[in-house]
């Protein structure tokens, strides 16, 4: 599929795009999940301490 002329420029362009998209998805989802969990922990601990 990638044996065409200029493959050495086309393949890196698509690979870098895929890596950056993967990073954006992973970081965004992890950020949201982390703070959601943190909020749940804090509200649970404050409820049990009352």
């Amino acid at each position: 599929m990638f044996d065409f002329k200029y493959a050495e420029f086309i393949v890196p362009a698509f690979v870098i795009t895929a890596v950056v998209f993967g990073g954006m998805i992973l970081l965004s989802v992890n950020h949201a999940r982390h703070w959601r969990r943190r909020y749940d922990e804090l509200t649970k601990s404050s409820q049990t301490s009352r």
Binding site: S28, V29, H31, A32, R33, R36, R38, T43, S46
Partner: peptide, 27 residues
Amino acid sequence: SAFGSLWLVRIRGEVWRRRAEAAALRA
């Protein structure tokens, strides 16, 4: 569409972060 999806996810993360920090301050 990808930007729309990721933007919404990141805003949600920001809202949770601010709520968590407010909860930590209250605690």
